[in-house]
């Protein structure tokens, strides 16, 4: 975990867990607002694609985990150079994960995996019902168009969570970072 967030020339101090938690809340609140706006704009048409890209950008540039940007060090530093070009000078050394970081990373993925498994199960059940009970009102009173929108909405949420949840858990749970002497 890095102690500052470098973004657009700004260096934000992120040693405090409280600040990091605010960042996580702001990211998810922002994404929720984007998806709500997208629904009112064109019922998750083209605007949903922009919201999805915004989610991916937030994941990469704020939360990190994939490359040299964001708060969380690359999960797999050996692969990080493929996602980040050009590599900022002197950053490689900062991105070394020690044993505790790796344990925390793996644990965060374990919990995220459980959440994701459950969410995809919900999406599959909806799609399954849509496929095998194609009568106009389905089992729970929805028509096919409702199912499509519901499945698409759940998929969008699940895809965004799949890209952000482990990093968000790490950022949320890491304790305060002591300032170096």
């Amino acid at each position: 975990m890095k102690d500052e967030l470098a973004m657009a020339g700004l260096h934000l101090d992120m040693r405090s867990r409280f600040r990091r938690r605010i960042l996580v809340v702001l990211i998810y609140a922002g994404l929720a607002a984007l998806f709500t706006g997208s629904w009112y704009a064109d019922r998750w048409g083209l605007s949903a694609a922009f919201a999805l890209v915004a989610g991916l950008l937030a994941s990469r540039s704020l939360l990190g985990g994939f490359d040299y940007h964001g708060l969380v060090r690359p999960f797999n530093p050996a692969m990080a150079w493929r996602h980040s070009w050009p590599v900022p000078k002197g950053v490689e050394l900062e991105c070394h994960n020690d044993e505790r970081d790796i344990r925390f990373r793996d644990r965060a993925h374990y919990y995220s995996h459980r959440v994701l498994s459950f969410l995809f199960l919900i999406v599959w059940v909806l799609a399954f019902e849509r496929r095998f009970f194609p009568n106009p009102h389905g089992l729970i009173g929805f028509v096919s168009a409702h199912y499509d929108i519901l499945i698409y909405g759940f998929l969008l949420i699940t895809i965004i969570l799949s890209q952000t949840l482990p990093q968000a858990l790490i950022v949320w749970h890491e304790p305060d970072i002591e300032p170096e002497e």
Binding site: F75, N76, R103, R105, D106, R107, H109, Y110, S112, H113, L116, F120, L155, T158, I159, S162, Q163, P166
Partner: peptide
Amino acid sequence: SLRDRVHFVAYTVSRWFALLLF
């Protein structure tokens, strides 16, 4: 530790698989 590690690998694979299928 092994359980957490395989979940990390599985999640990483599933993450890209999910994007591809989406």
